[in-house]
Amino acid sequence: MRIGFVGLGMMGLPMLENLARAPGFEIRALDREEAPFRRLAGHPAWGRGLSRAADPAALADCDLVITMLPNSPITNAVIRGAPGQPGLAQVLRPGAVVIDMGSSNPADTIALAAELAERGIALVDAPVSGAVAKAETGDLSIMVGTDAAGLAPLRPLLSAMGKVLIPAGQTGAAHAMKALNNYVYAAGLLAASEALGIAQAMGLDLAVFADVLNAASGRNVATETKVKQFILPGSYAGGFALRLQAKDLATADALQALTGFAAPQLSLCAALWQEAAAALPPAADNTEIHRYIARRPQAGTTGN
């Protein structure tokens, strides 16, 4: 199977490296940056089934193309192309499949799927969960916008990158579920950060408080995997960018308008993360929401 892989960022690069270790695939990787290819030059498959593509046109004869890009506008541009710059929609032949593994906007996914279907190209949304650590070990959870029958032919490919594959139903469902999942995670991390701030102001032992959270009903993935590991030591290196968390929350927030279902807590959470993303450096980790919360004006105070 000839595969194109577009997007070699923090998640895409280790995902590609795991995929290239699996047998039966000829892979062409596409990214504008040089750094990923310097790393790939040391991969056992480099030059023997794994090579670099210069542009989308070099993927024209691929059976399947994976995109792992930061957001919907970039994904849309790569797929739709621009004047003088053909995208995947123009270069792939009928019968090809595009798998969008980024965290895209579900409404955009549905629209793109319809556009590609007119050209005989299938689009499947398959966002991932697990951050960089699980991308490196191939232990990601992958939600797939298809049913069990549609997932079957994709399973060997996706299993090289993830251990848990969940058929989510119709096109766009996986992207919607990923955004909503990230909202629930972000709400838990935000609640833990605020609780830590209050506990610290009371002079409580934060390590003991973390133990209480994880032994009691406050337990969530943020308290289990972020508080003692990255927040209390002050390293703030959880492995997922705060700006991407804010982007995912904006995607989830937009589902209110799409569905007509009001979720005021989601709106509050999304607004606060956008505020933090605007105030913190672009490379800030998502765990730095704790640092940002601590620096905001507190109750009964003014100023910064």
Rank of each mutant, 00 (worst) to 15 (best):
M10K: 15
D125A: 08
P167Y: 11
L268Q: 12
R52S: 05
L92E: 04
A191E: 02
A58Q: 08
A257F: 09
M1L: 09
G24F: 11
T259F: 12
I110F: 08
G84W: 06
L165V: 07
R48G: 11
A250E: 09
I99H: 02
L112E: 00
P86K: 08
G95H: 09
A279I: 13
R243D: 02
T146C: 15
A299R: 13
W273A: 07
L13R: 05
A131E: 09
L280H: 11
T75Q: 03
V227P: 02
A135R: 06
I231D: 08
L213M: 10
Q90V: 10
A117Y: 12
L280V: 11
Q245T: 15
D253R: 15
Q298R: 15
A210E: 04
Q200M: 12
A187S: 10
D55A: 14
F5T: 05
Y185H: 14
L255Y: 08
A60I: 04
R32E: 10
A299S: 12
L92I: 00
A257Q: 08
V184L: 15
D31S: 10
F209E: 09
V132Y: 12
G87K: 04
Q200R: 14
P264R: 12
V132R: 07
D248R: 08
G188K: 08
A148P: 03
P264L: 10
D125V: 09
S235L: 11
M202I: 14
T287D: 00
N220L: 11
A135K: 00
R39Q: 13
F37W: 02
M11K: 07
M68D: 01
I27H: 04
E288K: 13
V124E: 02
P127K: 01
D100F: 10
A241Q: 12
W273Q: 02
A57L: 14
N76Q: 15
A294E: 07
A207P: 13
A41L: 05
M11P: 02
L69E: 00
G102Q: 00
V221Q: 14
A35L: 13
S267H: 15
Y292P: 05
T301A: 12
V227H: 05
P14T: 07
I74P: 01
D108M: 04
K178H: 06
A284S: 11
M15I: 02
R2I: 10
Y236N: 09
V128A: 04
M1G: 13
S217T: 14
V132K: 15
A207Y: 14
I66W: 00
A276L: 08
S193W: 13
G47K: 02
V144C: 01
L258K: 15
Y236E: 12
A299E: 08
R21Q: 13
I79D: 03
R28A: 15
N181D: 03
K247R: 07
A111F: 06
G49H: 03
Y185S: 08
D31M: 06
N214S: 03
I99P: 01
L242T: 11
G169P: 01
S103P: 06
D61A: 10
G49F: 08
T287Y: 05
D61P: 05
P264G: 09
A135S: 03
G145C: 05
A252N: 03
L190V: 11
A278C: 12
L154D: 01
L92K: 03
L16E: 12
P156F: 02
A22I: 05
G150Y: 09
L13T: 00
L140N: 02
A114I: 10
G84L: 09
G218Q: 01
A250M: 06
A152E: 09
V164P: 10
G169R: 08
Q274S: 15
A237H: 08
R219T: 07
Y183K: 10
